[in-house]
């Protein structure tokens, strides 16, 4: 795969991922990961201090599906949507089958009351399998590094 083909392929994965979340297709979210994929939200402060505490952690597609089930059926939160913007994606090849990607993101949260505000900014640190079990690239690991140590009210929907 040429560098340009690689860039397009990875950016397509990143774009499809954020559209699924922003369109409230959370049931599609686990499918962006390999079966034993890891999803972890951490703060930049804890990461820099070498402290492992996650804000959210899933260690398999099953745990991602549990998170979606809980959001749909158990957790109580005011109606809200996200709008993601993902930029500045840099890619490093690990081997012929895998790459690392680093991207910036910003998330605007739109509340049912009409309030739109910057909810989160940060980096995606991804390890991507280029040909996953759906024939598309999939995340082996996606670490969401929040720039801020503080979250407004709650973080229900994944980033």
């Amino acid at each position: 795969m040429s560098d340009i083909e690689l860039q397009v392929s990875v950016e397509s994965l990143l774009a499809r991922y954020v559209h699924a979340i922003d369109d409230d297709r959370l049931e599609d979210w686990p499918g962006f990961f390999v079966d034993q994929g890891i999803y972890r939200i951490v703060t930049a402060e804890n990461l820099e201090r070498g402290l492992p505490l996650p804000v959210m952690l899933a260690e398999s597609r099953a745990m991602l599906r549990d998170r979606v089930n809980s959001l749909r059926r158990a957790n109580v939160y005011e109606a809200q949507r996200y709008r993601h913007s993902v930029t500045a994606t840099l890619i490093d090849r690990i081997d012929s089958a895998r790459v690392r990607a680093t991207s910036n993101f910003m998330v605007v949260r739109i509340m049912r009351t009409g309030e739109s505000a910057l909810f989160a900014s940060g980096r995606y640190l991804d390890r991507i399998l280029l040909k996953g079990d759906n024939g598309q690239p999939q995340f082996e690991e996606r670490v969401v590094v929040l720039d801020s140590r503080a979250v407004d009210t709650l973080l229900a929907i994944p980033i």
Binding site: T43, V151, L154
Partner: peptide
């Protein structure tokens, strides 16, 4: 293990 904050209105 780590620390974070929640801002409440």
């Amino acid at each position: 293990l780590g620390s974070y904050s929640q801002m409440f209105s």
